[in-house]
Simulated scan of single mutants.
Amino acid sequence: MNLRNLGISTIAVLAVIAAWWIVSVSGAVSSLFLPTPIAVWKAFLEVIHDGYKGSSLLLHIGQSLKRLGIAFAIALLIAIPLGLLSGYFAKVRALIDPFIEFYRPLPPLAYYTLLVLWLGIGDASKIALLALAAFAPLYLSVVSGVSKVPRDRINGARSLGANQWDIFAHVIFPSTLPDLFTGIRTSIGITYTTLVAAEMIAAVSGMGWMVLDASKFLRSDIIFVGIILMGLIAILIDVLIRWLEYNRVPWKGKE
């Protein structure tokens, strides 16, 4: 993002904050529904200092990120090899695709009740739910990337003596990285949304649980704190992914 676009984004954010300030201070909307920015800031300082319901803010954030990180790592470890095999071998894809296409359109929370029955309300069911939510977009992005690899590139590697493993490791996998990073950005968004929803249903810690619990006591200032923090964390995650993409796939868009 160049300086001009950054300036436009900054002005847009400041305009929204100014509008929020004016509407909340004017009394046009009850503070129960729209607390002032100062009230939200004070609630943020309160949560940082005292924690929430006996646990520090860092613990709630850490619990959410731990669930997200473990689940996403599981999804990556399974989706990448299966996606490579499915994209390269039509029979493997024919074997796996019916199951992917069956569960992919299902809302993750629709089968969360089954996971809770099987794995309990602890982190195991949440991690399983998040891994399933992350898997399909990752798998499909890798399959799409493999299908775009020019056959001449593969045949050229074979003519130079590359075996099947060399082709996968040094030709196909690097060629799928642009699509893989696109899939990662899409998948992390879906998984993050699912994480918050799962914590709102069955949890005693995490950002989603904190927001839901605050709503029971009409603490809209805490709710705003939670929502803003979740949004900022999501932005930071996306920035990290884009930085990794820039460093690991410098040729993207230049081919």
Rank of each mutant, 00 (worst) to 15 (best):
P178V: 06
L106I: 15
L160P: 03
G87P: 04
L57H: 05
K148M: 14
R153E: 15
L3Q: 13
E245A: 09
M207R: 04
Y111K: 01
E46Q: 10
L65F: 12
P250G: 10
S159E: 12
I48C: 11
L95T: 10
P105M: 06
I127T: 06
I184H: 09
R153A: 14
L177Q: 12
V249A: 07
L77Q: 00
I22H: 01
A79S: 15
I17C: 02
A136Y: 15
V13Q: 02
S220V: 03
A131C: 06
A71K: 02
W21H: 14
I121H: 02
I227C: 10
W165M: 07
I233S: 06
A73M: 08
K66W: 15
I100A: 11
S175P: 06
P178R: 02
L218K: 06
F102D: 06
N2W: 00
L68G: 03
L117A: 12
P150Y: 12
L114V: 15
Y246G: 12
R242G: 05
L57R: 00
S187K: 01
V204Q: 14
M207T: 11
N247E: 10
I96E: 04
L14W: 05
Y103G: 07
I70R: 09
A202N: 02
S64T: 14
A198I: 04
L3A: 14
L236D: 11
A28N: 08
L132E: 05
A124D: 15
S9D: 07
P35V: 02
S26A: 11
R158F: 02
S147I: 00
G208T: 05
L6C: 02
A110V: 14
V196A: 11
T191I: 09
H60D: 04
L229Y: 08
Y246E: 13
P174E: 09
I121Q: 07
A94T: 01
S9F: 09
I241P: 02
L244I: 11
K216E: 12
I11P: 05
L140W: 10
T191M: 11
A128I: 09
S175F: 03
L180T: 13
I74L: 13
R4N: 05
G161R: 04
L195T: 08
F217K: 06
I80G: 10
P150Q: 06
N163F: 04
Y52M: 01
S159P: 04
I188T: 10
G231Q: 09
H170G: 08
Y112T: 03
T186S: 13
A75H: 07
L180C: 09
S220A: 15
D97Q: 13
F89I: 09
I237D: 07
L218G: 02
D123F: 04
L218S: 14
L236R: 00
A71V: 08
G156A: 14
L232G: 14
V47R: 03
L82E: 01
A28P: 02
D166L: 00
L240P: 03
P107E: 04
I227Y: 10
A124V: 15
P105D: 09
P178S: 05
I172G: 07
I78A: 12
L59T: 15
I167C: 03
A162E: 10
F33M: 05
L77F: 15
I121C: 00
V16R: 00
S9W: 14
Q63K: 06
L232V: 15
L68P: 10
A18K: 00
F181A: 03
P37R: 04
L240V: 13
L6F: 13
W165I: 05
A202P: 00
F99N: 08
A18G: 08
